[in-house]
Amino acid sequence: MGTKISGATAVQLTEVSKVYGRGAASVTALDKVSIALARGSFTAVMGPSGSGKSTFLHCAAGLDRPTSGTVRLGDTDLTRLKEAALTELRRERIGFVFQAYNLLPALNVEQNITLPLRLAGRGADQAWLREVVSRVGLADRLTHLPSELSGGQQQRVAIARALVTRPEVMFADEPTGALDTRTGRQVLTLLRDVVDHFKQTVLMVTHDPVAASFADRVVFLADGRFADSLDRPNPAAVAERMTRLGEW
């Protein structure tokens, strides 16, 4: 997809390919994918199993290096960075939310949220921490341990942890995959609110048409290639495109 989205670009992938293995045993997970994500936008990535969704997220977030092509976060070319610089960039400029909440069980809610700051040797901006905690609805849970929280509350902690460093982009990989429908919708509403209120850029991989409908735009992958996109999605339209992709 060659077209840029209007406004400043938060992330840009240009002709990104990822090949695992060599020779006859090689598998092309991504095949010359190009896309730009505008700052303050909410993008969902969908596609059949094996379409390259997770590889796309890992390359875009600097968790995996593409075989060819470039990935830019703002003005920074991730593909040119050494591993130590990439690690620092992920910690300072990117937020992550996964299906498994990845909270540390011995730390309370506040300690889990501020962990990225401590790893970076920085203190928390107390005013920003209070705003984030209030926005995610955890102000009365700061001293609780993860084991004392519901799944939805644990995912809210993970979202707050991703926000606390004021990242340029938040990457969410199946963030509602472990949650029931009602709790999942609450988390998606929170992600939508984070985009609208904080102007946060969010890229979410999901298999759920309802989850995708919370985004501004859905990008569809199939066989490692850009297949389609849908602006202002609704669940029925997303499901219909996914059905078509099964025969793509």
Rank of each mutant, 00 (worst) to 15 (best):
G177H: 08
R225L: 11
A127Y: 06
I113H: 08
P48A: 05
E88W: 15
P146R: 09
D180W: 06
G137F: 09
V202T: 13
F42H: 00
N234H: 05
A24Q: 11
R182A: 10
V187L: 03
D75M: 10
T70K: 08
D77G: 05
V136E: 11
A178S: 14
G177V: 08
G121W: 03
A84R: 15
N102D: 13
A160Q: 09
K53W: 08
L78E: 07
R241K: 14
E247D: 12
Q186Y: 07
L190G: 04
A236K: 06
L179N: 03
R166D: 01
L81Q: 14
E168K: 04
G69K: 10
L203A: 12
A237R: 05
V45K: 00
T9F: 00
V157I: 13
R217Y: 01
T76D: 12
V132A: 09
V157N: 05
Q155P: 00
E110I: 13
D216E: 12
L138A: 05
A29Q: 10
I35N: 00
S134D: 15
M170F: 05
A60Q: 04
D223F: 02
K4Y: 05
G47T: 01
E240G: 00
M46D: 05
R93F: 10
F220S: 08
S213T: 15
I5E: 03
L57Y: 13
